[in-house]
Design a protein around this nucleic acid. Structure first.
Lengths: 118, 118
DNA sequence: CTTGACCCTGACAGCGGTGTCAGACTTTAG
DNA sequence: CTAAAGTCTGACACCGCTGTCAGGGTCAAG
């Protein structure tokens, strides 16, 4: 599968797919033409990247984490500092969720009042 | 209260407090010296800004929303497009929460496996 | 009066991420 | 063969946000 196809399937721009490769998150093989050639599993990998990125993980953290997520290296023995990073990341995510829920209520509360008032 | 004090109380850098003003989110009065002079209620306003910003709202959206949040204008009659923006924002926030929870489980799941494996 | 802490404005720079453009090559369809 | 669509690399530029620095004023304590 080449890059345009993967882009369509994942909704991630061609630009960003190339960027992910530059950041060593993807390593597509190349056709004789030089075109990138992605395997089917890369589609799922891209979704993982998006999810984790959306959660606020920096790409360099994702890069280290990815082999575990994709199961590419189930035996992967991460260095303790990655584990620490991830544990910290989890609590950051949890804080973030809490904040989002507060904000959500802020806005919903206002919308409700606005509905009543109109 | 001047800017350094407000910064200490809110944990928001002096730089950002000035930036918020430039973005019309705060309008402190000025002392004869030209120093900014914040009222006590601004402290709460700043926390609101942070919460909403953390939730992904852009400052220009927050700017329009703020009068409602602070109750500065409880009678405020927002234009419908602000309401639309906010409704959309709520669903973006909800999507974001869902994503965060997925990511959280991704990471927790991995950490658990790593603990077992060690 | 001097010193140090605080404040002012304005500019520059960086972050991670993203779009876009130019110039060149490849592939596919007509 | 030709034209259109897809791809390649590399660069430039912007976004929102944030830090930092320079050059200068203000204020309170010694």
């Amino acid at each position: 599968m080449q890059i345009g196809e993967l882009s369509k399937r994942t909704g991630v721009s061609v630009r960003m797919l190339r960027y992910y490769e530059q950041q060593k998150l993807l390593k597509p093989s190349r056709l004789a033409s030089g075109y990138r050639d992605y395997g089917v599993e890369e589609e799922e990998t891209v979704r993982h990247i998006r999810r984790l990125g959306e959660a606020g993980l920096k790409l360099d953290v994702i890069r280290r984490f990815l082999p575990c997520v994709t199961g590419e290296r189930p035996d992967f023995h991460p260095c303790p500092d990655l584990l620490d990073t991830l544990r910290r990341e989890v609590s950051v995510i949890e804080d973030r969720i809490a904040l989002l829920e507060e904000s959500r209520l802020d806005i919903l509360g206002y919308l409700e009042r606005a509905d009543k008032g109109s």
